[in-house]
């Protein structure tokens, strides 16, 4: 399962990953916050799209991620 950065606002183009709340190998449930991200106006959590194990994190804290880009994979 791909974890993508959602578009929360009409002007939002990207976001900066503030902090990962999980690590590779962690077991997660659907809706669990995986990371906090910051945009021009919001600080929000990206949630897990389903239950499973975190397979990989594709951005590091401090990285800028485009709207719709894959941030992590859950298996």
């Amino acid at each position: 399962m791909d974890v993508v950065l959602p578009k929360w606002g009409m002007s939002m183009q990207d976001a900066v990953v503030a902090e990962w709340l999980v690590a590779v190998g962690d077991t997660v449930t659907e809706g669990q916050p995986l990371a906090t991200v910051e945009t021009d106006k919001v600080e929000a959590a990206v949630e897990s799209p389903g239950a499973g194990t975190v397979l990989e994190l594709l951005a590091a804290a401090g990285d800028t991620v485009d709207v719709g880009a894959v941030m992590a994979r859950i298996g």
Binding site: G9, M10, S11, M12, Q13, D14, T39, D40
Partner: peptide, 9 residues
């Protein structure tokens, strides 16, 4: 006028 898509640039 602020083009929406420029707000987050």
């Amino acid at each position: 006028l602020q083009d929406f898509v420029l707000g987050g640039v």
